[in-house]
């Protein structure tokens, strides 16, 4: 076997997949701005993607905030700089951990569900049936999920930010003997609006990634139950990796100056 041929095949396959995903994304986004809009489906998807993800995002954020407070405290006491705990918890949660962990949690939950649902619809010809009923599957299936994910992810992350900071506050005041008033004042002094908005912008992009990859893999699944399972796994893995990679790019853009 020629190793160059193997590398070539992998590269061509990856480029082909990237091209297909780009075309799919372009088609999806182009339909987002063109009527008709299925408001009932958009609301339904907001409920499924956003509201039902609230418990998992809230718990993740709360415990992450608590753990962060503990770790920073034990790391910083060697330099007698325990006072930075509140600041780092607030900045860490709002800038990075809130959006990224929230995105990953929703990717695991919603991207998998989208891929499984659309994949099943594909292999049982329900997507073909939509076309025969003069309904564009992109508008009916993809657009509501994109809009719902891009709107609800920032809201989820905002709730996560509040609960993450609260988790740090609870651990700080209950276990580490911080004064509650001082902790709150330090947090509010150092936290700026752009820390929160940057996280929410990131999470809107993560929402697009989650919905788009779930829809793409579901739409293109084939081969029955096994194909649907493969689509689900690929959607979660691909969206998680893309969330982490895009987070690096966005952090570089937002905070490089």
């Amino acid at each position: 076997m020629n190793p160059l041929a193997v590398i070539g095949r992998v590269v061509i396959s990856a480029l082909g997949e990237t091209g297909r995903l780009s075309v799919f994304t372009w088609r999806g986004l182009s339909h987002v701005v063109r009527p008709p809009f299925y408001w009932r489906l958009i609301a339904q998807q907001m409920l499924r993607i956003g509201y039902f993800s609230l418990p998992v995002v809230a718990l993740t954020a709360f415990f992450t905030g608590g753990v962060l407070a503990l770790q920073i405290y034990h790391g910083s006491d060697q330099f007698n700089s325990e006072s930075i705990v509140a600041t780092i918890v607030a900045l860490g949660i709002t800038r990075e951990l809130g959006p990224v962990l929230g995105g990953l949690m929703v990717a695991g939950r919603a991207s998998a569900a989208i891929a499984a649902e659309l994949g099943t619809m594909r292999v049982t010809e329900q997507i073909d049936a939509l076309t025969t009923l003069a309904t564009n599957p992109f508008k009916y299936l993809v657009v509501p999920r994109i809009i719902a994910a891009m709107v609800t992810l920032p809201l989820l992350v905002f709730v996560g930010d509040v609960l993450g900071i609260f988790g740090g506050f609870v651990v700080g005041t209950q276990s580490l003997d911080f004064n509650a008033g001082v902790y709150i004042k330090t947090t509010s002094d150092f936290l700026e609006l752009e820390d929160i908005t940057s996280g929410m912008i990131k999470s809107a992009v993560f929402g697009l990634i989650i919905a788009m990859l779930g829809c793409y893999h579901g739409f293109n699944s084939k081969g029955g139950a096994q194909g649907v399972g493969r689509a689900t796994t690929n959607a979660v893995v691909a969206s998680s990796i893309l969330i982490l990679a895009s987070n690096y790019v966005m952090t570089s853009l937002f905070f490089s100056s």
Partner: peptide, 8 residues
Amino acid sequence: FQNAALFD
């Protein structure tokens, strides 16, 4: 459709 393809 062959298997009806109803929206479940």
